[in-house]
Nucleic acid binder design. Structure first.
Lengths: 307, 307
DNA sequence: CTGAAAGCGCTAACAC
DNA sequence: GTGTTAGCGCTTTCAG
């Protein structure tokens, strides 16, 4: 019957349906946009987005993409108020800032949403992320197993929960390995390759303090490898290094970069799946949930100790 | 007055508005999704998407993201029929296949749409792309100016209009430089790094036939550089090579890859801008338009002839 | 120029 | 079970 109707050129008007059911059939995805500067790797976002898209499609929902300004307070609630979306997936949220305030607003109004790739400082926010704590631990253990003993840790900004997670995982594993946290050389970049490049100068100046480096992501790791190479230090030869993300670039670096693989696609999928189930269940308010997906250490040459 | 209303907790219901105005206020963006295999670089899509997002936001429209299956005939018309979108931007269309048939349907029904990054075989389809013809010409000229004379051309599948453009640009410039097209070594990959890696074997076997390579994109170029390096041939030293896209990876390759920069962001912006203007003008049927944006040759070490 | 009313295309509730 | 109708929140039209 419906097929017959379609053959006659009839299509149900989804807007009319949304109007009466009070459900748009769309879920919103908010991501930060920084014109001309990409602090986040495009890899990161496109993988998560694909995962979301996969799941959303499967449930017959639409996916409304919303770029937000990097600075200032985003209005996560507006598309709910105007009934354009039924739920929101929010990427790249920093802790303790305007983004979190805006998320708290959503919570107050009972709008279903989930953070992806960062937890936010309140446990009442639903969130899906990778287990960066465990991932960084694996990186440390691997380096120690390779025979490295004096580790440097180049982290990203601590406004991201995953940076905090990495720090925790790093320190916990350092202790577990019987090493002294006080000996660790800490540096902080902004997750960009250029910040890795800059940090390489500082690392070189203190090269007697470390024999291996854990970098918060591949992009910084790559910048460090390049910066140290300029100064005559070769990854894998003169020091070990592990990145994080398993980006394409990590594979083509010379030497190839050992890295912590993060299941971005699965993270997007998981978050979308939970949110959509919540919508379908029709409950007034979704219980906050937290999902932490496992990471995997991908061992390449950059962390293999030369003999 | 509207602000006062908002203070009282009122928000206009965008769905109700769409219902009555018969306009969803959303632009659809269709992109191919290949689970676990990325033939397209994520860079390509995320840049175009950002450009679209920038423009769409500016006009107060929403951006509905639609992943389509790699195989089979996509239903570009459905979201129009169900009134979920007012116009469509379609990425990654192959010529002469089911995607084009689906696009032809849109055209027949008078739905506004624009292809981005590929033209389609019919000039009646609106399209925005980079000037790959000119870009590849620049690459050839540069290599010849560097003193290379026997060029190899590793193109992508000819189902993409940009591959055809590159072929034309390549041959035209070869002739213009007084070289013989018949001498050129032609190979075809699928734009992935692994296909470049495989093609490197063939290139190596015929290494007496070329002293420089033009690759259809960076990913293949990188694969070629890596594959030839395994066999002892060093880019920049033993041969020159130029890629295309100016991807992040091209910068970290060793040696850094000379490449044709493609204004992806601007392409997305231009297409969205034209389509949105068309919608606002309210004309029944949008005149088909074609925009071809200039490329830029980014010279790095891989194409500099050693002395 | 201001204010009332019709109607968009569906779903859900209700009557038959 | 099947058929009818009210009504969702806007915009547009038409009357005052």
């Amino acid at each position: 019957m419906l097929e017959a109707a379609e053959a006659l050129g009839y299509f149900p008007n989804a807007i009319a349906k949304s109007f009466v059911t009070q459900r748009s059939g769309n879920i919103g995805v908010s991501l930060p946009s920084v014109p001309n500067v990409r602090l986040f790797s495009t890899y990161y976002f496109s993988e998560i987005l694909s995962g979301i898209g996969f799941e959303v499609q499967k449930h017959g929902y639409g996916l409304l993409l919303q770029f937000r300004e990097w600075e200032g307070k985003p209005d996560f609630a507006l598309p709910f108020h105007t009934r354009k979306i039924d739920a929101s997936l929010i990427l790249g949220v920093r802790m303790g800032g305007a983004e979190e305030e805006a998320a708290a607003e959503l919570e107050r109004e009972g709008m279903p949403f989930c953070l992806i790739g960062s937890r936010g400082s309140s446990p009442s926010f639903s969130a899906v992320d990778a287990d960066h704590c465990e991932g960084t631990g694996k990186a440390v253990r691997h380096l120690v197993e390779q025979g490295f003993r004096r580790l440097a840790f180049v982290n990203g900004p601590l406004v991201y929960s995953n940076s905090v997670d990495r720090q925790q995982g790093f320190e916990a594993e350092i202790k577990r390995q019987g090493l002294d946290v006080a000996d660790v050389l800490y540096l902080e970049g902004n997750y960009s390759r250029s910040s890795g490049l800059e940090l390489a100068a500082q690392l070189y100046a203190q090269r007697d303090r470390f024999d291996a480096i854990v970098a918060g992501n591949d992009r910084m790791g790559i910048g460090i490898v390049q910066g140290l190479k300029e100064r005559g230090m070769l990854a894998g030869n003169d020091y070990g290094i592990v990145g994080c993300d398993d980006s394409d670039a990590s594979k083509i670096l010379e030497p190839p970069l050992t890295t912590v693989r993060v299941p971005f696609f699965e993270m997007g999928r998981a978050a979308a799946s939970r949110i959509l189930e919540g919508l379908k269940s029709g409950e007034a308010r979704l219980e906050p949930f937290h999902e932490t997906l496992p990471t995997e250490l991908i061992i390449r040459e950059s962390s293999l100790k030369a003999r």
